[in-house]
């Protein structure tokens, strides 16, 4: 059984924002509009978090694509009262929208602020809903959602692999963010497979996981920038 993980090479990342847009389209995220954005309710499952060090002209800014890090010991799962968020067999922190009661406890408990909430019913102006990806269900108001590691793509790959009676190959599953990255900064794969690209990157001396000190054991690795 695979243990899905991701490695993001910050040295490659150019902060182009394609991952945000690709995720938005792939996962049927609805734009929330100007008023809600003003109210700090806009959301992306992956977003470029901007860190500024220093405040003068020599300040440096860096962008980190931030998403649900799919902890192996997820603080959000522990607190969910209804089993709407849970750790799947393959290490993906699932979010079951039909079960979620919208208490937002998982959001409060997540140290990565990876979860977002549908404050209103998502709106699709005109016929925009038509372009929605049929693999991903449309959320309704009042439920929490977050990055799923594009697990529908994992399911498709698994189905294909089983139809061909083989294992899923390394690199066969590519989440939307990784797919659209022109810098090829994002690698996805099985962390339990020592041969996989993602394992190789995770073993890099530059690799770190966000807030490892919290003991959440994230499965998203970042590779520190060089220079």
């Amino acid at each position: 059984m695979a243990r899905w993980g991701m490695a993001i090479d910050l040295d490659r990342c150019t902060g182009c924002g394609n991952c945000m847009a690709a995720c938005h389209q792939e996962n049927n995220l609805a734009a929330v509009g100007p008023e809600q954005t003003e109210q700090s309710r806009a959301f992306h499952w992956i977003r470029l978090v901007r860190e500024v060090s220093g405040s003068d002209a020599h300040a440096t800014v860096r962008y980190t694509p931030t998403l649900c890090v799919q902890c192996d010991d997820p603080p959000c799962v522990k607190v969910c009262p209804v089993h709407a968020t849970y750790l799947s067999e393959e290490g993906i922190v699932g979010q079951i929208y039909a079960r979620c009661i919208g208490c937002r406890y998982c959001m409060a408990a997540c140290p990565y602020n990876a979860k977002v909430f549908n404050w209103y019913e998502p709106e699709w102006p005109g016929e925009l809903k038509k372009k929605s990806n049929p693999d991903v269900s449309l959320r309704s108001h009042g439920v929490v959602e977050k990055c799923t590691f594009c697990h529908h793509r994992v399911n498709h790959a698994r189905e294909q692999a089983r139809a061909e009676d083989r294992e899923i190959r390394d690199g066969e599953v590519v989440p939307a963010c990784a797919e659209s990255c022109p810098a090829q900064a994002i690698v996805f794969g099985d962390l339990d497979d020592p041969e996989s690209m993602v394992s190789a990157r995770a073993r890099s001396p530059r690799a770190y996981r966000p807030h490892e000190d919290l003991g959440t054991r994230p499965k998203v690795f970042y590779l520190e920038e060089q220079e």
């Binding site: 067999e89 699932g94 799923t148 529908h152």
Partner: peptide
Amino acid sequence: ASNDCVYCHD
């Protein structure tokens, strides 16, 4: 067969 939620729910 697996009863893992995300196998059937998305």
